[in-house]
Design a protein around this nucleic acid. Structure first.
Length: 987
RNA sequence: GCUCGAGUGGUGGAAUUGGUAGACACGUUGGACUUAAAAUCCAAUGGACAUUAGUCCGUGCGGGUUCAAGUCCCGCCUCGAGUACCA
């Protein structure tokens, strides 16, 4: 009986679905284990073999944990709001919900074929109302919260109101907007309701604020940074301008320190932690206030706030630089400089952020004419503007210390500004000295003679005395913009009364995305929801009603923005725990049982997006007592990318005597070109090429005397036309495109060799391999094994379908191990296993168990192969060996394992059968083959009893004839004996 | 520029605390079975010399530590990923 993978896989996939084999229960005596994959965005292109890599790894782990007696939660769902579906809708008018549904169905079909042990009863989709109801609910919770720095956690806004009522805001230690005016309790109590709301908005964890966005007037939409190329829109090349818009923002900056500190708590890859650390960008230093000298006769003095990490170098300040966008620029610029400053600001505004970043070398700036007073020396310091200072970081102004900062140094050199040296014995004639340690401050009044640390402390202390500065920690992490001017996203549960946002009561959720005619912005530039005719909130009936009913007394307009893609993905891992709960986001029972994710697998591209926002929301939910853990995933693994192995054919760009004639495409085999290039041959030295030239007409083609690669154009050929030996299927290639139907091929030994190159898997490179075609040809178990066999999970590696025959052959061989009967009938006996059988089995148990725990799945596939090879040569058919083997293989190749298990006579699924227990006694050896080295080089091996002492080993080795042969009469200087390992003879 | 990761046969990749480099596969070559093919099985397969035994060279490059280095240390080179004037 042959290994009929199609029949087997089909049978078990149906059976698992019918019986609900992988359903997880929310209460169990078993310990829990939560294995999660990053859920996919269902794109129209479907899955290629790179996508399931992480899913296979997590599935193996989940199945393994079931064998180990855990109650395993292993769910899957879809991140189904997103731009591609909306883009498609704009182009075709097809509702994004329909496209999304189609794509999801296709994904599901593909996933089902691979035999994953997902609990599909918990499937979720971020675009479903019963899911985004809870996205909206969390948004409301955030709106109703503020961040109390004293308690270092989020609290309900009501506690802030109580403080305002009793003591105003001066003593409140909260994370809030930069410019909050101080007020007393009396002042607060005297404010109108609307004014109170306005103030509270400056404290809420989600708030409305004016934000600069990339606005594209032609497309009528806001673009993300990566949608802009060279200052124009990627699509269409339309101009993009910076525009201020009122947007919802998330006060993630409140959590900056905790997000940084708690990285220590989680077992995540170091590169991922590093990039989050960089993204948060904590820097410790001081805020310093400089005051400008009054400009003109009736001029005012303005404070310039700067942030510096080097307050110890304050005596090295020789100028100040403001970002061109800095609000003080207009106020302090002198009349003489006005024109130059204006021209500079206009010039920089035209340059996109990208251009500015790409062009770091060019130094530009202009003097404002104004001076600031040095806090200590009271000397005047010229104030410049320059675009190397970014408006968005710190205060948008710096105190420039050219001797200690290379950018300041370059700027000073360029504009001939003095560069005072404040470092003892350091040469700054060529470059700034930016090191913190290793120098002592000089020429700095009270700081002279001090090293970095002491000088910093003292400088801050003295600044505080002057009330011109204090120690400060600055973060690069900005608050996150939460509004999108798009259709296909979660609507906000928000309506506006007199321009002030109001939350809809949670009991009326979900607020369902309205239908629109067009998915584009309105003519007045409002987001697509502005096209909806039924999009107003009736505060009496508590429902969404037609816009005509807006009267601004009981019926109000609803928010027109929608939420960004990361909203729905920031808590989904919690929702899986109780995915079908209609009353709550999840029950207390479910969250307390499942707690958090034990293993999370996904791509590293989410390092600073999804994974940072999700941690932020988790911490917020933790502060509110909604979840029991402040980190949602204990362990995280980034699976590597699977790249494609593209195939190239080489079109010969021969010269034609008459260029008006139609060209016959001629493809030359890689082997012929290589030979000609290497040996300096003429192309027609090859018989096959010569024949083709003759066929076209020797007078019509000119052939160069030597051959080089420049005479050929590499063209992508579909990888499905190429076999394992890089030979092209000529007929398939000819039929591929009409232009190649008449093509000629210069071959050797009847084969055309293609070139190979590893590239990203993409449609345009014709190197995409779909999992369906692999399942069709080799089966899901082969696919699963092969994806793991390719190499370490976290590494990126090229796909080459040719290699799959190895693992497929292994499965067949294992099948035969169980089918040694007449004509391949199933045959497993009750024969006592031999010592060799047991040794093979137990070393496999040990290795596989270690490998899975270490996520080293590639090596356990090799271990299975060795095991089956050994058992086959031992002619083992003992039940006591083959039963455990089926269980060992089951996480990797579950279909064949189930089939063999049922043939072994079991009616229950193999899924929860206990994992075999390793017993070391079967591995104990009576003798050891010692490698004998001379001066570190292994020369021969000898068999010695395993329990021999060091001295006995040495004696035995020295007595050996081969040892004497090697020594040739020399006396060894030293003999190293490591029992159980090696013997090394020196001399 | 900075941060992180990686360089091992023709290819994907193995190699515990430093202890037999190249496991396991793919590919290649030869052979068996077969009318033939597929499938299966057997053998060889890092390079060079010797072709019996064996010797030398080999984990990106150059040094070092050690009885012993793919593994540890120092200095380079190349490739990949992320980030980008962060004061």
């Amino acid at each position: 009986m042959n290994y009929d993978f199609k029949k087997i896989e089909d049978k078990w996939q149906k059976e698992w679905a019918q019986k609900g084999t992988f359903r997880a229960v929310n209460n169990s005596d078993k310990p829990k284990f939560y294995v999660l994959d990053m859920f996919p965005y269902p794109s129209g292109a479907g899955l290629h073999v790179g996508h399931p890599l992480g899913y296979i790894a997590s599935d193996i782990y989940a199945r393994y944990k079931r064998h180990k007696g855990f109650n395993v939660l292993h769910p899957m769902g879809y991140d189904s709001f997103g731009l591609p579906a909306e883009q498609y809708a704009i182009q075709t008018g097809q509702h994004p919900a329909l496209t999304t549904e189609t794509n999801i169905n296709r994904y599901r079909e593909q996933l089902d074929k691979i035999g994953f042990s997902f609990d599909w009863s918990r499937e979720l989709r971020t675009s479903n109302t019963d899911y985004y109801k809870w996205t909206q609910w969390i948004f409301i919770q955030l709106f109703n919260s503020w961040y109390n720095k004293d308690a270092d956690k989020a609290e309900d806004i009501s506690s802030l109101i109580v403080i305002f009522e009793n003591e105003g805001n001066t003593k409140v230690n909260a994370v809030c907007d930069d410019e909050v005016a101080p007020f007393t309790a009396d002042q607060w109590n005297g404010l109108a309701a609307n004014e109170k709301q306005e103030i509270l908005l400056q404290y809420r964890l989600t708030y409305l604020a004016e934000t600069e966005v990339n606005w594209c007037p032609v497309l009528g939409t806001v673009l993300a940074n990566d949608e802009i190329v060279n200052g124009v829109s990627e699509r269409g090349g339309h101009p993009v301008v910076r525009k201020k818009m009122t947007q919802w923002s998330m006060r993630i900056s409140a959590y900056a320190q905790r997000l940084l500190d708690d990285l220590a708590k989680v077992d995540w890859p170091q590169p991922l932690k590093d990039s989050q650390t960089n993204w948060i960008g904590r820097s410790q230093g001081a805020a310093v206030t400089f005051h400008t000298l009054p400009v003109g006769s009736e001029g005012e003095s303005y404070p310039i706030e700067v942030f510096t990490t080097r307050p110890d170098t304050i005596f090295g300040v020789s100028f100040m630089t403001l970002a061109p966008e800095h609000e003080l620029v207009a106020k302090i610029t002198t009349p003489e400089q006005k024109e130059a400053v204006q021209a500079y600001i206009e010039a920089t505004a035209k340059r996109s952020e990208r251009e500015r970043m790409a062009d770091v070398k060019t130094i530009s700036g202009v003097f404002t004419g104004a001076y600031a007073e040095h806090p200590f020396t009271k000397e005047p310091i010229p104030v410049w503007i320059g675009d190397y200072v970014l408006a968005g970081y710190g205060t948008g102004a710096v105190m420039s210390v050219p001797c200690g900062d290379q950018r300041d140094y370059d700027f000073a050199k360029h504009f001939n500004i003095p560069i005072p040296n404040i470092f003892e014995g350091i040469d700054i004639s060529e470059a700034a000295y930016a090191e913190k340690e290793g120098a002592v401050i000089a020429n700095s009044d009270f700081l002279s003679g001090l090293p970095y640390k002491k000088a910093t402390k003292l400088a801050i202390y003295e600044l505080e005395k002057l009330a011109q500065g204090q120690g400060k920690i600055n973060y690069r992490l900005r608050d996150a913009v939460f509004s999108r001017q798009r259709y296909w996203g979660e609507p906000f549960p928000v309506y506006y009364v007199d321009g002030m946002p109001q939350m809809i009561d949670a009991k009326y959720l979900p607020i369902v995305l309205p239908e629109v005619e067009k998915y584009l912005p309105t003519e007045t530039g409002e987001p697509p929801l502005g096209n909806a005719s039924v999009w107003a909130w009736d505060t009496e009936t508590n429902e969404v009603v037609a816009n005509e009913k807006i009267n601004n007394s009981t019926v109000f307009p609803l928010e027109l923005n929608t939420m960004p893609g990361w909203a729905g993905s920031s808590f989904y891992f919690n929702r899986y725990m109780d995915a079908n709960n209609t009353e709550e986001i999840f029950s207390k029972e479910a969250i307390n049982y499942w707690q958090d994710v034990d293993l999370y697998i996904g791509g590293s591209e989410h390092a600073t997006g999804h994974l940072l926002y999700a941690r932020f929301w988790q911490k917020f939910l933790f502060d509110k007592g909604i979840v029991p853990k402040d980190e949602f995933a204990k362990k995280l693994i980034n699976q590597g990318m699977i790249t494609g192995t593209s195939a190239f054919v080489y079109r010969w760009e021969y010269g034609q005597t008459d260029e008006s004639q139609p060209r016959v495409p001629v493809f030359v085999s890689k082997a012929i070109i290589e030979d000609a290039v290497k040996n300096g041959k003429k192309l027609t030295d090859n018989a096959a090429v010569k024949a083709i030239v003759a066929a076209i007409g020797t007078d019509k083609i000119s052939v160069a005397d030597t051959t080089d690669w420049a005479q050929f154009t590499p063209i992508h050929a579909d990888v499905s036309f190429v076999n394992a030996s890089d030979e092209l299927d000529i007929e398939a290639f000819k039929n591929w495109r009409s232009e190649y139907a008449e093509a000629k091929f210069a071959m050797e030994n009847d084969t055309y060799l293609v070139g190979r190159e590893v590239e990203k898997m993409s449609k345009s490179k014709y190197n995409v391999v779909s999992p369906d075609s692999i399942c069709e040809e080799y089966g899901a178990d082969s696919l699963r094994l092969y994806e793991m066999f390719l190499g370490p999970l976290e590494q990126s590696k090229p796909w080459n379908t040719a290699g799959i025959s190895g693992v497929h052959g292994f499965l067949k061989k294992m099948w035969r191990l169980f089918h040694g009967g007449a004509e391949g009938a199933f045959k497993v006996t009750d024969a006592e296993p031999t010592a060799d059988n047991l040794k093979t089995l137990h070393k496999t148990i040990k290795k596989v168990e270690e490998d899975i725990e270490n996520f080293s799945f590639n090596t356990s596939v090799a271990t299975f192969m060795i095991c089956v090879n050994e058992l086959a040569s031992q002619k083992c058919d003992s039940r006591q060996i083959l039963e455990p083997l089926a269980i060992l293989v089951s996480p990797y190749a579950p279909h064949i394992a189930e089939e063999l298990w049922s043939k072994l006579g079991y009616s229950e699924s193999i899924a929860t059968v206990a994992f075999p227990i390793f017993d070391g006694k079967h591995l104990v050896e009576s003798s050891k083959e010692y490698p004998i080295s001379f001066n570190g080089k292994m020369r021969f091996k000898i068999q010695l009893p395993a329990d021999l002492s060091k001295d006995d080993i040495e004696a035995a080795v020295m007595a050996h004839e081969k040892t004497q042969e090697q020594l040739q009469g020399r006396t060894p200087k030293k003999i190293i004996v490591v029992p159980g390992k090696i013997v090394n003879i020196v001399g």
